[in-house]
Simulated assay, not measured.
Amino acid sequence: MDERVAEIREHVRTVYQDSGAHGFDHTVRVTRLCELLGAREGANMGVLIPAALFHDIARPLEEKEGLPHEEEGARMAESYLRSMDYPGDLIPGIAHAIRAHRYSTGAAPETLEAQILSDADKLDAMGAVGIARTFMQAGERGGGIADATAHFHEKLLQLQRCMYTESARSIAGRRHAFLTAFLEALDDEMNGHLPRL
């Protein structure tokens, strides 16, 4: 691993006090997805990987102070990267990718790297991990199964249509099918439907 990337990763890790649906483990998975997608799509990894590492760094601030984490995270990334003499020509692309990654803001990712980060973040909300994170998030907010399943319908089942890259669309198709099968099984069990013997 490049020394600068290792330094960024360690800096980001120290910011996360608690685990959770948007904890450091989420950042690590999104970064791995970015490595995979970026290699397939020909992205500039000097932009993509720092953006992935920083993309949720301001989540704790958003939860405590209500600051939009994508805006504050971009600001924090710019400040830290300048302090470590990261190549200045790459910093605007990193900041843009962070600002444009969030599903709920509707900000359009205008570069390949921003599109890949957006895709990777959404992919981590799908499939088996996405199911686990959804129930974690519902619990963190004091909700139950009904709250989690509402989130599936409001957001997660929409994500397959929101992918920008061909590589992400391929992965999203499989993860979407898994989500759908899980919801059907959950609905059957919640409603007391017995399987045929």
Rank of each mutant, 00 (worst) to 15 (best):
L183H: 11
E41S: 03
A43T: 00
N191I: 04
R161T: 01
D18F: 13
D188T: 02
G142E: 07
P195L: 04
E62G: 04
G173E: 08
G88Q: 02
L159K: 02
D124V: 05
E154Q: 05
L123W: 00
Q160A: 13
F152P: 11
A146S: 15
Y80F: 15
G173F: 00
A125F: 01
G130P: 13
L117P: 11
H26F: 03
E63I: 06
V5Q: 13
E110F: 03
F178I: 08
P50K: 02
H55S: 04
P60I: 08
H151Y: 13
T165I: 04
E70F: 05
D121Y: 05
H101I: 01
E72S: 10
G38H: 01
V129W: 09
I49G: 00
R102Y: 06
A120K: 10
A39E: 15
Y164W: 06
H96Y: 06
L179I: 10
T134A: 15
R161V: 01
L67N: 05
V47D: 04
C162F: 03
N44W: 02
L33A: 00
K155C: 03
D25T: 14
S118P: 11
L53K: 00
Y16C: 07
R141Y: 14
A125E: 00
T14Y: 10
Q160K: 15
R169P: 01
A108H: 08
R175T: 07
M76C: 10
K122Q: 13
L90N: 02
P195E: 05
G73F: 03
